[in-house]
Design a protein around this nucleic acid. Structure first.
Length: 489
RNA sequence: UCCUCCUUAGCUCAGUUGGUUAGAGCACAUCACUGUUAAUGAUGGGGUCCUCCGUUCAAGUCGGAGAGGGGGAGCCA
């Protein structure tokens, strides 16, 4: 038996537990927030443990009118009462209140959440209160469950959880614009003799930024522990205004020694399926709620825009089928041979060497294969310096051992590669891309001292949550979204 | 950053060819009712029609600029 700690209010029972088979006749203490108060008698109380409310019955005449007046939407209550079989139709049990204590009032005229449907846009502006809605209750319980499942998945496989730094002086990763970290004054910052800002006088004695990826540090760990993963916040100062980008987001980056690109794909596919399975098993009611919510929303759409697949159906389909694996070259051929292409419906040109555009990825995933697709072997010219050059490529058609996993409705959810472990090839590539070798000597040391084939990938945690919850806007799957021109709370 | 759409009561939204005092549902207040399920019925309060400039006898409505938001694109996870 796990060690049980007593609650500060003693013996409080969570509503989820209460609803899962507490025998009638049991005296219970419940606390939570009022969702609705109907008929001056029936309180729908919620404590966040589940979307289901417990109905509290305050029998007419047994409670002070002045107290009942304060039972308003959003108020917090402590109830002592007895679990009884419900006389009403909406629930099997309810709690007949003996005492009813107002823990915190909620001015009904000012509390923004009403017992009605609110738009996601409105709730986004009330992010501090939106946890108290069913939709966001389900989303953030699922976010928790998935975070827990991430650790469980890697722990079961003997990976070491490595904390890579959030402040970094490395800017070679090239994953995007970085946020500068400095304690120098904005006005009158010290300058060197070239007239540039003199970062030797800064807090760290050099220019520093918020990390855009823990990968390079992760590789250092993998060169000792064999298998590591990172799971932390990352920051991109890109002016991206889309439903799938954040300036601050969480990323999971496993890095494995003795893995090639195939092993890497196998791990990534197993990982995604594990997360979905965990959610289906442990948060079935939240998935069902979001499934119903989505179905309701689909009804508003014209027939041709409906996905035709429920959330649960979609997740089960992903879990029960292998991801499609194709090379970049095959992907280009599929696009070139498609009716879509022949009817000139692609806005962007399709030819070998291009970076696949959203419309191309969406066609492959949503029209052609109708399931997640792993694309490998991208042209070297469009990929990062650390990706392993494939051997035996035709001149001008060099490819790297990269892999992207594309998910329906989300696009790229995983980006990864086998890393270039051969020092000479890595240095040649860095020189070609004008990356200063001396700044990266710590990284190159891994290739100098006992280098091994290794691989890794990054999974955008919020995009994964989007996929599992069906939420279409990434701002709705992180508690407090940071996006261009928006940093509330 | 680009394209596009939107902004009217606390929320969701209607508002005709530019024309008197801008409406509805929900929410809120008061009363009634009392086994309700977003309870119901009656009555009532509630508006910088996003902001500024312009056209006009007259602008929520037409034009321009700005702000905020949605969707799409690029960059990416």
């Amino acid at each position: 038996m796990p060690f049980e700690i007593s609650n500060m209010f003693n013996d409080r029972i969570k509503i989820k537990q209460l609803l899962s088979g507490t025998p009638t006749g049991t005296e219970v203490v419940v606390m939570g927030w009022v969702r609705t108060f109907r008929n001056n008698q029936f309180i729908a109380l919620n404590d966040g443990s589940t979307n289901a409310n417990i109905q509290i019955v305050a029998t007419l005449g047994e409670f002070d009118e002045a107290i009942l007046k304060r039972v308003t939407t959003g108020a917090s209550l402590k109830i002592v009462g007895t679990v009884v079989e419900s006389l009403g139709k909406g629930q099997s049990v309810e709690v007949k209140a003996k005492t009813l204590e107002i823990l915190g009032d909620s001015d009904a005229e000012k509390f923004p959440l009403q017992p009605k449907k609110h738009s996601l846009e409105f709730l986004r502006e009330k992010a501090h209160l939106r946890f108290r809605t069913n939709t966001f209750g389900s989303v953030f319980r699922l976010r928790h469950a998935l975070a827990f499942a991430v650790h469980q998945f890697y722990n079961e496989r003997g990976f070491v959880y490595l904390h890579t730094p959030i402040i970094t002086s490395s800017d070679a990763e090239g994953a995007g614009e970085m946020f500068r970290v400095t304690t120098l004054p904005l006005e009158g910052a010290p300058k060197n003799d070239k007239g540039e800002i003199d970062y030797t006088q800064d807090f760290f004695g050099k220019g520093t930024n918020l990390t855009v990826s823990g990968q390079l540090e992760g590789e250092l760990g993998a060169m000792a522990f064999s298998e590591i993963y990172t799971f932390g916040p990352t920051f991109r100062a890109e002016n991206s205004n889309t439903t799938r980008h954040l300036a601050e987001f969480w990323m999971i980056e496993p890095e494995m020694a003795f893995y090639d690109i195939e092993d890497n794909m196998n791990l990534a596919e197993a990982f995604i399926k594990y997360l979905i399975n965990y959610a289906l098993k442990n948060n079935a009611d939240d998935i069902d709620f979001l499934d119903a919510r989505l179905a309701e929303e689909e009804k508003q759409l014209p027939t041709e825009k409906r996905s035709g697949l429920g959330l649960r159906e979609k997740l089960e389909l992903v879990v029960n089928n292998n991801f499609e694996r194709i090379t970049y070259t095959e992907a280009i051929d599929i696009l070139l041979n498609s009716n879509h292409y022949k009817k000139k419906k692609f806005q962007y040109e399709v030819k070998w060497g291009i970076d696949l555009q959203s419309e191309h990825e969406r066609y492959l995933v949503e029209q052609h294969f109708k399931k997640p697709v792993i694309v490998t072997g991208y042209p070297a010219a469009i990929k990062a310096f650390y990706m392993r050059m494939n051997d035996g490529c035709a001149p001008g058609k060099e490819t790297v051992a990269a892999m992207d996993i594309l998910a329906p409705g989300i696009g790229e959810i995983v980006g990864g590669s086998q890393r270039e472990e051969r020092l000479d090839k890595l240095e040649a590539r860095m020189n070609a891309m004008h990356i200063p070798l001396e700044d990266m000597s710590w990284y190159l040391d891994t290739r100098r001292f006992g280098t091994v084939p290794h691989a890794g990938f990054g999974l955008g945690f919020e995009r994964m949550i989007q996929f599992v919850t069906g939420m279409t806007n990434i701002r709705d799957v992180i508690p407090f979204a940071r996006t261009p021109k928006n940093c509330e709370y």
